[in-house]
């Protein structure tokens, strides 16, 4: 099987580990958002969530194709070969959980792609396009965080619970990804934290208190260590493709 090699792909000079890390983030979050189809709280939100999912899937396809065959990579790798953050594989939960996940991730992705777009590395062209998409994803998450945080007592309680539950998956995001050049990860993290803090304050929500990494969490997803729900996600996503080896679709 090709594509699982996480060393540098010398043929095109694409750092495979980085392409997989960013590509898997986008792929898996897109998959989770796709699960919302038909379940969104209001029809307008069906359209919005699908737009974000489609942007992410587009990013994933470009990134995975940089380092191999997109379908082989998506459908034929085992769980331990996936390099996505644990954050993006977390189940949708209620709408507040989905929004909290979106908030944490889109802020991260927006900051990261903004940085990559400025450089002249292999990901600069992709990042230049993706940064516009992620700006919109970020805005979507921010608008909803404000409304849920400063909406009703119920929405505030749900939003707080969601932020608390996902907080421990946010430390992993700033573990340096091999192949992304000499990014200042500490500065990235500081900007991310400042943005989260400012927004939660506007929403009348406290910054979660717990640790941002757990025993498992620090850099775990990037090393192929995932959480239990991820195996089930892959089972569903890969089943049909794997049932027909070699078939084209």
């Amino acid at each position: 099987m090709t594509g699982t090699d996480t060393t540098r792909d010398t043929t095109r000079d694409i750092p495979a580990a980085a392409a997989l890390a960013l590509g898997d983030d986008a792929l898996i979050l897109s998959h989770r958002l796709g699960e919302w189809a038909g379940h969104a709280p209001v029809l307008e939100e069906e359209v919005a969530l699908a737009n974000i999912a489609l942007d992410l899937l587009g990013q994933a396809r470009v990134l995975l194709s940089l380092t191999g065959d997109e379908d082989e990579l998506a459908f034929l790798r085992e769980e331990r070969s996936f390099r996505n953050l644990q954050l993006v594989e977390q189940p949708n939960g209620d709408f507040a959980h989905t929004i909290a996940r979106q908030l944490f991730f889109s802020l991260y992705q927006h900051e990261l792609y903004g940085e990559l777009a400025l450089g002249d590395g292999p990901f600069a062209p992709l990042a230049a396009k993706a940064v516009k998409e992620t700006a919109y994803h970020r805005d979507h998450a921010e608008q909803w965080t404000l409304r849920l945080g400063d909406g009703t007592p119920e929405s505030r309680a749900r939003m707080r619970a969601a932020l608390d539950a996902l907080w421990r998956y946010t430390g992993e995001m700033f573990q340096p990804v091999e192949g992304l050049g000499d990014l200042d990860w500490a500065a990235l993290e500081a900007r991310w934290l400042a943005a989260v803090t400012a927004l939660l304050e506007r929403a009348g929500l406290a910054l979660p208190e717990g640790p941002r990494t757990g025993a498992w969490a620090a850099g775990a997803g990037r090393q192929g260590l995932h959480t239990e729900p991820f195996g089930r996600l892959l089972a569903e996503m890969q089943h049909l493709h794997r049932s027909h080896p070699g078939a084209s679709w």
Binding site: G34, E35, E46, V47, A50, L57, A74, E236, M237, H239
Partner: peptide, 28 residues
């Protein structure tokens, strides 16, 4: 939508998501 999470290729997955999204749009 029953098949979005099981689409057998990423190209098909994108097409299907866009199609189901259109249906929400058309309903609107």
């Amino acid at each position: 939508a029953n098949w979005i999470t099981r689409a057998p290729s990423l190209r098909r997955k994108a097409i299907l998501m866009a199609k189901v999204q259109d249906e929400a749009g058309h309903g609107l």
